[in-house]
Design a protein around this nucleic acid. Structure first.
Length: 431
DNA sequence: TCTGGGGTCCTAGGACCC
DNA sequence: TCTGGGGTCCTAGGACCC
């Protein structure tokens, strides 16, 4: 049995690259992509990075710089990114036998056994060339005996141009050389808080973390960090997961384009979120028994009195019918709503999932109700299926009146690019 | 004036039981 | 008056990721 080898393939500046795909005129223009409501910078082209625009900054803080430097901004266009992502992932699936789609712009590949047949570095370059040619997206490839090391190898491939976008970190000496160069905060799973605590113990580099005693780390931190230490030493603790795990919760929430101060508008927003969450729930072919609704004012404002509240409810039986969750959510909203606040955000969460038909009623539930409920459920399911089918073609073909037609509180997306690949009306035109 | 959204996993501590 | 200890389950909150 040969040793496991992972590759991490990660798209470079993914959202910004997607925006440039159909705009050859922007090849050398600095481009940023904004979060919902055009609030923060969530992606930057390499030109924008060079200008010092940081990931996650609020747009208003860099607006002047962007104007001076001619940086072009786009609202996030998830329909486009998801479509390009799918194409990249299918290409990877042709090139490697086992692929784990880790996020919209990253995938882990299992390269075990490949070493006997060809050079891993060459294989990495093959991936880069193919995706560049077929999708027009540039990727970097990191190769190593554990996922955590593959992440670092990828980081190295992105950081140092002389690697030409591929780093093979299967060699132990090479691993240690790279680890010594990297601050501990660059390690996958080590965030800001852990970095601080580790530094207090004199652990500043990735190599120092790798050389720490796993038991000591477990005592002072957790099993998670202990696993990271082992992974840094080339011991694979995190397996490749090809099958997407079934979700345990579904959240739908948004910041409002404008603050909400009246309850009917809030009811519209909550209805919209319930509708999205239930659609997702049915896509997952699951039923939920738990519902949470939450509202809050802006945590950044110092003139608004802060208010943040959530309430939950357990249904008698798990379900996926939008109407059922709508009526429960409105009850929760009645209990949560307080007049006089300027609400900035709200959302709903579904949890406690069951496969349809497997829920065991409790000892004291009324069996008589179940038969009735089940008959009703069959009809309800048909209705929901029909609705999902209609909305799958063109979202918002039909919707519940409570969601509101105008949605004045809705997201700001003033800088949206066309849906080049997912809408016939907006296909790119070759001139 | 303007600050994203959607997830997962782990731990600590309380409630409860025997 | 004296007032154990161990186990389980659940929840809230913290930390991380992209």
């Amino acid at each position: 049995m040969s040793k496991t080898i992972f590759a991490l393939v990660d798209c470079n500046n993914f959202y910004a690259s997607c925006e440039k795909l159909f705009r050859p005129d922007l090849t050398h223009t600095p481009v940023v992509v904004l979060s919902n409501n055009d609030g923060c910078v969530v992606a930057r082209s390499k030109e924008a990075k060079k200008l010092g625009i940081k990931m996650g900054v609020p747009v208003f803080q860099v607006r002047e710089l962007m104007r001076q430097q001619g940086v072009l901004a786009f609202s996030s266009n998830y329909a486009l990114y998801a479509d390009i992502s799918q194409r990249v992932m299918s290409t990877l699936e042709m090139l490697a036998p086992r692929v784990e789609v880790y996020s919209i712009d990253e995938a882990f590949l299992d390269l075990s056994g490949l070493q006997q047949l060809q050079s891993l570095t060459e294989f990495g370059h093959g991936i880069r060339q193919r995706i560049q040619k077929w999708q027009g997206i540039s990727v970097c490839v990191g190769i190593a005996p554990s996922k955590t090391l593959a992440k670092l190898a990828n980081h190295a491939a992105k950081t140092w141009p002389q690697t030409a976008g591929v780093v093979d970190l299967t060699d132990k000496a090479r691993q240690r050389k790279l680890l010594a160069l990297l601050p501990v905060g660059e390690v996958w799973g080590i965030g800001g808080k852990l970095t601080k605590r580790l530094q207090q113990l004199g652990i500043n580099t990735a190599l120092q973390l790798a050389d720490a005693n796993p038991n000591y780390i477990r005592q002072h931190f957790s099993v998670v960090v202990e696993r990271t230490v082992r992974e840094l030493n080339g011991e694979s603790c995190l397996a490749l997961e090809e099958m997407a795990a079934t979700k345990k919760q579904i959240i739908s929430s948004r910041s409002f384009g404008e603050r909400i101060t009246n309850k009917p508008q809030m009811a519209e927003a909550i209805s919209e979120y319930i509708s999205r969450a239930c659609t997702k729930l049915r896509q997952e072919q699951q039923q939920a028994k738990h519902l949470t609704v939450f509202l809050r004012t802006s945590p950044f404002s110092d003139k608004d009195t802060p208010y943040s509240a959530s309430k939950s409810i357990e249904l008698d039986m798990p379900g996926s019918d939008t109407r059922l969750f709508l009526s429960k959510a409105m009850q929760l909203l009645d209990a949560l709503w307080v007049n006089g606040h300027r609400y900035a955000k709200a959302g709903v969460m579904l949890a406690d999932f069951y496969d349809p038909g497997v829920y065991q009623p409790g000892l004291f539930d009324q069996p008589a109700n179940f038969e009735q409920q089940q008959q009703q459920t069959a009809a309800d399911q048909k209705l929901m299926q029909l609705m999902d089918k209609l909305n799958a073609k063109h979202s918002k073909t039909i919707w519940f009146a409570s969601q509101g037609a105008k949605q004045e509180w809705g997201m700001k997306r003033e800088l949206l690019s066309p849906a080049y690949t997912t809408n016939w009306q907006q296909l790119p035109v070759a001139k």
